[in-house]
């Protein structure tokens, strides 16, 4: 089992790599977790992870700037069916468009756009920052045995924008912040989390183990 974590200048790769290393070790998978900007490494990996911290436009420009990466992802994930996990802005980039500050085209793998969170309660602060529970929209293997609902485990969020999918069937889980906020989207072998599994302690490690075990 090899995991490629894509390095496109978007920070905080160490935390993601360490969390994947630990989850892989605990699940008994041999193999390497590689932080890489090399499309060939992505092509050979069993799992692909796209992290992302920062602004949508900045992250998209960073990803576009890695020679051959977007084309390779289209080829091996979208058409080739390799399991893929996007994290935070890495998840948002799956959308057709981002509306953070300017309008920016995303990868367009999942229809929809990334918009500012507008909690119904004006006293709620933006960014949505901290620990929140997940509400299941539909069952998904990456949430296998993860307790959801108000009494479930918590995930760590830090974001001001969220993914609004065109097709509700592409939603996997939401979180409540003055109304539902998209927490997980998924389609075929592609899944993305708005929260940070690598920072979400028990829930995060369970989700990563599930992603590694996923056989879509």
């Amino acid at each position: 089992m090899s995991v490629a974590i894509i390095d496109y200048g978007s920070g905080n790769l160490r935390s993601a790599a360490k969390a994947f290393e630990r989850a892989a070790r605990e699940a008994g998978y041999a193999g390497a977790v590689q932080v890489t900007a090399d499309p060939d490494v992505v092509r050979r990996a069993d799992r692909v992870v796209l992290p992302g911290v920062g602004a949508f436009a900045d992250c998209k420009a960073g990803l576009d700037a890695v020679p051959g990466m977007v084309e390779t992802l289209d080829e091996v994930v979208l058409r080739g069916g390799k399991p893929f996990l996007g994290i935070c802005v890495g998840m948002q980039l799956l959308a057709a468009r981002g509306r953070e500050k300017a309008t920016t085209e995303g990868l367009g793998w999942i229809g929809g756009e990334v918009r500012l969170i507008t909690p119904a309660d004006p006293a709620l602060k933006v960014p949505h920052m901290g620990w929140n529970t997940l509400d299941l929209v539909r069952p998904h293997p990456i949430l296998a045995d993860v307790p959801t609902g108000e009494r479930g485990l918590h995930a760590y969020f830090v974001h001001s924008y969220h993914f609004v999918p065109d097709d509700p069937a592409h939603g996997v889980a939401t979180t409540d912040y003055g109304g539902p906020v998209t927490a997980i989207v998924g389609r075929d072998t592609v899944v993305g989390t708005q929260f940070h599994p690598e920072k979400s302690q028990t829930l995060g490690l369970a989700l990563i183990r599930n992603f590694l075990a996923w056989r879509p």
Binding site: G11, N12, S15, K18, V53, Y156, V158, H196, E198, G204
Partner: peptide, 29 residues
């Protein structure tokens, strides 16, 4: 960051974007 899967904030003496980048790359959130 290698041991703790929780959010970490780092402060003190941060003056430039390079300082920030170095901390984020090291694993600060």
């Amino acid at each position: 960051a290698a041991l703790c899967f929780m959010p970490v904030t780092v402060g003190g003496g941060i003056r430039t974007n390079d300082d920030i980048r170095a901390l984020l790359l090291a694993g600060a959130d």
